[in-house]
């Protein structure tokens, strides 16, 4: 487990205690497959929390457990200090399912109106909110088209609109970027940031790590049904140990020893050196007549951390299989 330095804030918006989900399978359902194992996690009020992990890691399972679409084998969860079975508390939650699909015989405006009725909003309020939400997700011109004619990306936008329609305090989004083109992803990112500015708590799952790095105050990394680390993205990856990268141009040939370590593409070279050797390398390059274009710290990305955890998990699974446990 990675060490995480969490900020101390007010009562958590979402907290889970030993949340576990097992699925029976095999002959007569005698075998058990653990999809989520003893999840203890807190999402603080007002933060953007990214839930990251590979496919099948337990992200959607956790979110579905929180939404009571499935029921835990063990453990419990609370949202806004209330047990998740408290149905009235669900007024304060917005939820976008993974790969959302809605009643395709309705138009986007009708669907949003239907959900607004479920939330018991007045007729005038419904009308105003539906229009505002359609505009917000860029569907104001498509609001009167039946959803059966919508593309996957458009459905994702409708899903986003229904999640925030009733002005919830907590927004839980399951893979909100999937199926979206770069423009759509940018728009979803903007909406998430807007929700954060409005003081809402946002929890979203993703396997697109750059989105998590860009948006999240904290992330939780889940692999193989277990939470492997929680913290701010920069806390989870160590900046210092990775060294520095120098990008430079060098016309012609040179015999400077430092060049042996550089990778070349055309006239441009890229060189990674430990931080302590940075100035020495720059001196050598200057002496060789190189033009230095940039010097930047090499950060271990969340992706590397993520890949390491996944590899470790696979190695462990393989070891268990070999030993026959």
């Amino acid at each position: 487990m990675l060490v995480a330095k969490n900020k101390v804030m007010s009562a958590p918006a979402i907290e889970t205690e030993n949340l576990t989900k097992e699925y029976p399978h095999g002959f007569l359902n005698l075998k058990k497959r653990t999809s989520l194992e003893g999840l203890n996690m807190q999402v603080e009020t007002g933060e953007v929390f990214g839930f990251i992990g590979p496919n099948g890691a337990g992200k959607s399972t956790t979110i579905k457990l929180l939404m009571r679409l499935i029921f835990p084998t063990a453990g419990s969860a609370r949202i806004l200090g209330k047990p998740i079975s408290d149905i009235e508390m669900h007024r304060d939650i917005g939820y976008l399912p993974e790969q959302p699909y809605f009643y395709d015989y309705l138009t986007a405006a009708e669907l949003l109106d239907y959900f607004a009725r479920i939330h018991d909003l007045s007729a005038a309020d419904r009308k105003e909110r539906v229009q505002r939400m359609l505009k917000k997700v860029g569907l104001e011109t498509a609001g009167k088209i039946q959803l059966r004619k919508y593309s996957k990306g458009m459905l994702q936008r409708v899903g986003m609109a229904q999640a925030i329609l009733h002005d919830p305090k907590i927004v839980i989004l399951d893979e909100p970027m999937s199926g979206l083109d770069p423009v759509g992803r940018r728009e979803v990112r903007d909406i998430i940031l807007e929700l954060k500015h409005e003081g809402k708590t946002v929890m979203f799952s993703t396997h697109i790590l750059s989105d998590a790095e860009m948006l999240c105050d904290r992330v939780g990394v889940i692999v193989g049904g277990k939470l492997r680390g929680v913290g701010a993205p920069e806390q989870l990856v160590d900046v210092k140990t990775q060294g520095m990268e120098i990008l430079f141009e060098l016309a012609g040939q040179s015999v400077a020893p430092v060049l042996a370590k550089a990778t070349r593409s055309g006239d441009r070279y890229r060189l990674q050196v430990p931080e302590a050797e940075l100035y020495g390398a720059i001196e050598q390059l200057r002496a060789a007549g190189a033009r230095i274009l940039s010097v930047a710290p090499v950060r271990a990305t969340l992706e590397e951390l993520f890949m390491n955890l996944v590899e470790a998990d696979r190695a462990q699974a393989a070891a268990i299989e070999v030993s026959g446990k």
Binding site: R68, I87, E88, H90, F102
Partner: peptide, 14 residues
């Protein structure tokens, strides 16, 4: 099957 009830059941609907 179509998972249309997911968004609905997450709302205050028993």
């Amino acid at each position: 099957d179509k998972r249309t009830l997911y968004a609905l059941l997450a709302k205050p609907v028993r």
